[in-house]
Amino acid sequence: MAQVLKEEVRNRILDAAEKVFYKKDYRSAKLTEIAKEAGIPVALIYTYFKNKEVLFDAVISSVYLNFESAFDEEESLENGLPSERFVEVGESYIHELLKERKKLIILMDKSSGTKHTEAKQKLIAQMQVHIEVGLKRQSKKEYDPMLSHILASNFTEGLLEIARHYQNEEWAKEMLKLIAKCYYKGVESL
């Protein structure tokens, strides 16, 4: 019974921290605000989490981005246009990511002052490499790497805009489909 209560308190702290980090950001969020949101004394947070940074890490851990495996899987597909490979592999990964959209936004937009400050830039860099691989695969022409960087930045920001303005799962799927269509039709025209 005590273990169930401990897990319930830990989950209340995590839920409260997610709300506070989402509303504010890492730097301006206070443990006292998180404790108040969770309905517990602030000292109890330290029973479960060493400090605010460890709590932040626990909040975002389920969405910490490593697109490399999805990119590798997509790149390993031998047949099909880039848009078809995205539908086969990447789309489902992004749908899962959007289910955790508040945590994604916390990681990408509200992590200044943590070891995750560069998460968005790391994602863009991973995506840039993926785009460069795709361009080399489909075209004999060599493009300035800035093109891949711009495309990666725009796609990442589009994904984040879907997360920031999320209405429901169906809406998010439709918006992702439209953004991917615009993106891939543009890339496939090169």
Rank of each mutant, 00 (worst) to 15 (best):
H116Q: 01
G158Y: 10
I162G: 03
W171Y: 12
A163Q: 09
F49N: 01
I13S: 00
G186E: 00
V54A: 11
L65H: 08
L135R: 07
N79P: 03
K99L: 13
L123T: 09
E161F: 03
T114D: 12
R27H: 14
E73S: 11
V42N: 15
P145W: 00
L190H: 02
E174Y: 15
H95C: 01
H95F: 09
M108G: 01
L97F: 11
Y64N: 15
L44E: 12
Y22D: 02
K122C: 07
A43Y: 14
L160H: 03
K6A: 04
V63S: 10
V9A: 15
T156A: 13
A17H: 01
I150P: 05
K103W: 12
Q167C: 06
A70Y: 01
W171D: 14
L107D: 02
D144Y: 09
L97M: 14
L178Y: 09
V89D: 07
R137W: 15
A17G: 04
P41C: 04
V59A: 04
N154A: 00
K36G: 14
H116V: 02
I179T: 14
K103L: 12
K140G: 10
K136M: 11
L14S: 07
A16C: 12
V87G: 01
S189H: 15
Q126N: 09
Y183A: 06
H95W: 05
M1E: 04
M1C: 08
K19V: 01
H95E: 03
A172I: 04
E84S: 02
V54L: 05
R27A: 15
I94V: 11
A35L: 10
E73A: 14
E174G: 15
S76H: 13
E68M: 10
K30F: 06
L135E: 04
S112D: 13
V42D: 05
I105Y: 05
I105H: 05
G80Q: 03
I162D: 00
G39A: 01
Y166H: 05
Y93R: 13
K141T: 08
K177P: 06
T117D: 09
Y26H: 02
I162E: 00
Q3T: 04
I45H: 04
Q138P: 15
K99D: 12
Y64P: 05
I124G: 00
M1V: 15
N154I: 05
L98D: 12
E161T: 04
L14Y: 10
M1F: 10
K120W: 08
K19S: 06
V63G: 08
D72V: 13
R101Y: 02
L159H: 14
T156P: 03
R85N: 04
P41V: 10
A29V: 14
N11L: 13
K115N: 07
N51A: 10
P82C: 01
A152W: 08
K24A: 09
L5I: 13
W171C: 13
E174S: 14
I105Q: 05
E88D: 04
E118C: 09
P145F: 05
F71Y: 00
S62F: 03
I40K: 07
H130Q: 07
E100T: 06
L107N: 05
G113H: 06
G158K: 10
E74V: 07
E75N: 10
F86E: 11
K52P: 01
G90E: 03
E88L: 02
E33P: 07
F67S: 09
S92P: 02
L81H: 01
I131G: 03
P41R: 10
N79D: 02
L31W: 03
F86G: 12
G90A: 10
I105C: 05
C182N: 15
S69K: 09
A152Y: 13
